[in-house]
């Protein structure tokens, strides 16, 4: 019990982090597109839980509503509308598979090596970054709003043009001409 109280948050972090990773692997390895979509949903939910553990309640809810809700529904619609059965037979990597495996293993090993040698105490994560504005403790949604609409206003606005381009692109490439 003592152990759980002390390390409960850490334990939960690892549960959800492993869950998110496993689900992400499922998205790219499962053959049935519907299972892939469900894996993606599990991944989103685990990430939302990670946000909650960092006291970013607003972000966690947005993650569930927007990604777990809206975007998932769109994915499922597309999967049901488009005939994806032929995907199951085609091999994606072909002759490059061995090289891809070697490179991927090397990359993962490198990243693991860095993180296993990583001294968590040395890098001070800004405490309560998600709930403070100029030193004052506020709600998470207020903190996100201040960050998004003041400090990061410019990238936010550029992102809106970016989304417009994405929409135009989907129409241009998707319609029958």
């Amino acid at each position: 019990m003592e152990f759980l109280v002390q390390h409960g948050a850490d334990l939960l972090f690892y549960v959800f982090a492993v869950g998110a990773l496993a689900a992400a692997v499922g998205v790219i390895t499962l053959r049935n597109p519907m299972y892939c979509a469900i894996s993606l949903l599990v991944c989103f939910l685990c990430v939302a839980a990670l946000f909650l553990l960092r006291h970013a309640e607003f972000l966690a809810l947005v993650q569930v509503f927007v990604y777990g809700g809206g975007i998932m529904v769109l994915f499922l619609f597309v999967i049901m509308l488009v005939n994806l059965h032929r995907l199951r037979e085609s091999s994606v990597f072909g002759e490059y598979a061995p090289m891809a495996v070697v490179l991927a293993v090397l990359l993962v090993a490198l990243v693991l090596f860095v993180f296993l040698n990583y001294d968590q105490q040395a890098v001070a994560a800004a405490p309560g970054a998600f709930v403070s504005v100029e030193g004052q403790v506020v709600g998470n949604s207020e903190a996100v709003a201040w960050t998004l609409y003041r400090d990061y206003l410019l990238p936010f606005e550029i992102a809106s043009v970016f989304l417009l381009v994405a929409m135009v692109g989907a129409v241009v490439l998707g319609r029958k001409s």
């Binding site: 990061y152 410019l154 994405a166 692109g169 241009v172």
Partner: peptide, 21 residues
Amino acid sequence: NLLSIWISLELMALSSYILAG
């Protein structure tokens, strides 16, 4: 700022992907 540089780069890149196709 690396973040604004990244999103601007993405704006250019996404437009380019569509133009290439």
